[in-house]
Amino acid sequence: MTVRNRGALAAMAAGATALTVAAVVAVAARPAADVGADEVAALADTAPSAAGSRSPVPVRKGELPAGAEIVPPVGLRIPAIGVTATVNAVGTNPQTNEFEVPPSVDQVGWYRYGPGLAAPAGSVVIAGHVDSSTQGEGAFFRLRELDQGDRLTVTGSDGQDRAYRVIAREEYQKTKIPLERYFARDGDQRLTLITCGGPFDADTRRYRDNLVVTAVPAGPAAAP
């Protein structure tokens, strides 16, 4: 075997190693596939049942509307991914009209215009940072690791814990996410967790995608 040949073989080996490493990295970084998308669509379905459309005209006293009882979430625990976060009531940014995720990345925000924990229907939305350029990893950094069946607990301002069970994890490009489904005030009771994901554009410092986890009530919370 010539020296030239040996050098060429070494180059081939190095090349193969580099390609293998690249392939492994690509596989490891690949976003986990969506799960439970059909279940989420079913929860949002508000089509009336066929029966009973010939009811008499409803009549009520035209009293001034009184504020409905709203129970804001104040704490969120997701043991599977080590999350214990304070939940703040937030709205939208007046300039951008976007969800005002709390600036402190270890806290998450509840959309105060939508349903609270006591609402009989609709989607309770909590959004949190995956990370920030100045503060590092956020409360929802590992949200993508959640899978169907994982449990989480939300504490309300009434001190009561409510247990939820994950039924879906979906990823959408931000330009295509059906936000009206996740910010719905009708349909089944559900909890929607949102963060960022997908490829990151270093120039605009924005992620391309939103990661959405949907959970449904899972009965009384287990003792801590």
């Binding site: 939208t92 990370d131 956020g138 931000k174 910010f183 963060t195 960022c196």
Partner: peptide, 12 residues
């Protein structure tokens, strides 16, 4: 809301 911007670090 117009969107849910929730990350600027690129760590994920």
């Amino acid at each position: 809301p117009a969107g849910v911007p929730s990350g600027s670090g690129g760590l994920a």
